[in-house]
Amino acid sequence: MRHITAISDLSVQEIDALIMKARDIMANPGRYQEACRHKKLATLFYEPSTRTRLSFEAAMYELGGQVLGFSQAEASSAAKGESVADTIRTISCYADLIAMRHHKEGAPTVAAHYATVPVINAGDGGHNHPTQTLTDLLTIQMEKGRLGNMTVGLCGDLKFGRTVHSLIEAMCRYPGVRFVLISPEELKVPSYVKIPLKQGQVPYEQTTDLQSVMPRLDILYMTRVQRERFFNEDDYIRLKDSYILTPAKLELAKPDLSVMHPLPRVNEIALAIDQDPRATYFKQTLYGKYIRMALILMLLEVQA
């Protein structure tokens, strides 16, 4: 039994295998529709989610399995003060696999310690979001045909943006990747996220100016400034409109740029961009279901 609390829990070879499996599921969905029959996935979402929770649930249903769980902390015994440990011990009795989102960083690590079934971190505060990273990697592979030798721009809230942290950790293991980190000073990448960059001697630069770096990017990964991560509303209001991708800015980009976003967006990508063939974020959402199907099969050790 194993848990996935961070993308580093998976080797490059395992990630490649998951991507291959997701592509096979896309090509041959009928082969997998009974693969998880009589298996149950518990989705424990202490924090709101649209895509992650529903894609986990859709993934399990498409594998022929069943789903139970809650979509807000108030609907569970957490509202009565129950600890993560006790909740997880309980859910382990009812489900074969747990996907957990929590607003506090490290909660899935606690869950993994007490669970008797595999635990997947479905996002913990501003910390990690490994299945979003798997989604992002599948998207890049599908759009670019490779995962190395490219310049990846990450833009917006790089401090609290957990998807960014996990994506950096994953992509710096592929050769020829260069990062451009675009954020306001107050929302720069935390020091611990830069450790793998420094250890792997991966080239990166930090800037506050999106336009000047735009022509060099192969991937532009936009993020939302997340109101829920701020203790101070004034700070949020001051920073929320730091970067807005408009058609004028996109004109500066390569014709084969992929614009990605983990969603939800607020206003950081103008609606007019949705029509541009470089907008990849809705396809990214679809890929998220397939990669989660592949991960569920792996953790449940289902051969299909």
């Binding site: 506090k104 490290g106 690590t109 606690v110 913990d124 505060g125």
Partner: peptide
């Protein structure tokens, strides 16, 4: 933002992440 901030019974565990810099990081966050 760490889970230890709301779960009082959890042990506060730190891992050695850089021996040369004498650097420890929280197991959870």
């Amino acid at each position: 933002r760490c889970i230890t901030s709301i779960e009082q019974e959890l042990p506060h565990v730190f891992k050695l992440t850089d021996r040369e810099k004498d650097e420890y990081r929280c197991l959870y966050c």
